[in-house]
Simulated scan of single mutants.
Amino acid sequence: MTTASSTFVASDGDGYERVMGRWSRLLALPFLDFAGTADGERVLDVGCGTGHLAFAVTRRTGAGEVRGVDLAEPYIAHARRHNQDPRIVFDVADACALPFADRSFDRVLSLLLLHFVPDAGKAIAEMRRVAKPGSVVGAAVWDARGGFVSNRLFFDTAAALDPAARERRARNYTRPMTRPGELAKAWRDAGFKAVEETSLAIRMEFANFADYWAPFEGKEGPAAEYLATLAPDQHARLREAVESAYLDGEADGERSYAALAWAVKGKAPA
């Protein structure tokens, strides 16, 4: 599923977990270290996916309420099935048209969403609208071009084999909000005060090549979207080439790849 408000292909919560949910679970921790939490707050998680940021907020603090919203109905269904905290409520909603009153949240956060929103400025304006004056509004997105090693392994290999993959690679690494300073500029342009931008780091750990490759065989995200366009012989050729890059001349087994994200926070103006 893609819409005018999102370019991310979304169809299945379990599939998203294999592609990205397991990594957003890890990234949520340094993101919250940066964006902060406090007891008793009403927190909004915009583009919650399968819910890992919302879950991390309630594990970390005595938040009064956490609302998680995402455009993908399968992801919301997955999050609801795995939610055991009555403080958390998940709903289907558009980041560019949030169904909440002005100035209704103490903290507004977004993890791994804005680079898939064609009109990111509209989503940021909505995040500001629903934030109380003086409250923190923060977001993080992958440093897709410079810090997303496991993803580049796939797309750089594909681009070397297939001219059509070069356009997809270019699109993937020039998404909005992913360049250095771009999030901070967007936050200042939206009127936020005390804006800070930083880089967050996690490690993506894979048990073996099968663990690395399996998510691409699903339906979630840009890599799977591209793989589905290939004929069987092209598919096999790409898999073999990516496996060679993964192995690097050594035996199959565990690999650890750095993954960097840009993060920003600012205070909503009065």
Rank of each mutant, 00 (worst) to 15 (best):
R42P: 12
T50Y: 01
G36V: 15
R18N: 13
L44D: 04
L29M: 13
F34N: 05
R22F: 03
V43R: 00
T50L: 05
A38W: 03
M20C: 04
V19D: 02
Y16V: 08
W23I: 09
G40P: 08
R42F: 09
D39V: 11
T37E: 03
A28H: 03
Y16W: 11
E41G: 02
R42L: 08
R42H: 14
Y16I: 13
E41L: 06
Y16P: 13
A28M: 05
L26Y: 08
L26Q: 14
A38V: 05
D45K: 12
M20F: 10
V46D: 11
F34C: 07
D45V: 10
L27F: 12
G40V: 11
D33Q: 06
R18K: 15
R42T: 15
L44V: 10
G51M: 08
E41F: 00
F31V: 08
R25C: 09
G36H: 08
A38E: 12
D33R: 02
Y16F: 13
L27H: 03
V46E: 11
D33Y: 01
M20A: 15
R25I: 11
D39R: 13
V19W: 01
R18Q: 15
A35V: 15
L32V: 07
G49W: 00
G36L: 06
M20Q: 11
E17Q: 14
A28S: 15
A35R: 03
V19M: 07
E41W: 03
E41P: 01
G21D: 03
E41A: 04
L32I: 11
S24A: 15
G49I: 02
R25A: 14
R22G: 07
Y16N: 14
V19G: 00
L32F: 10
T37M: 03
V43C: 01
V19H: 09
G21H: 00
V19K: 01
R42E: 12
L44C: 03
Y16M: 14
A28L: 04
Y16D: 10
W23G: 02
V19P: 00
V43A: 00
G36P: 14
A38M: 01
L44G: 01
F34M: 03
G21K: 03
C48F: 04
G51C: 08
W23Y: 12
L26D: 07
G51W: 02
L32W: 07
D39S: 07
Y16R: 10
F34P: 14
F31C: 06
A35Y: 03
D33F: 06
D39M: 06
V46P: 10
V46H: 04
R22D: 02
S24M: 10
R42I: 13
H52G: 10
F31E: 09
G47Q: 04
D33G: 09
F34E: 05
Y16A: 04
L27V: 15
S24L: 12
R42G: 09
G40W: 03
L26M: 08
V43G: 02
L29D: 15
G47R: 00
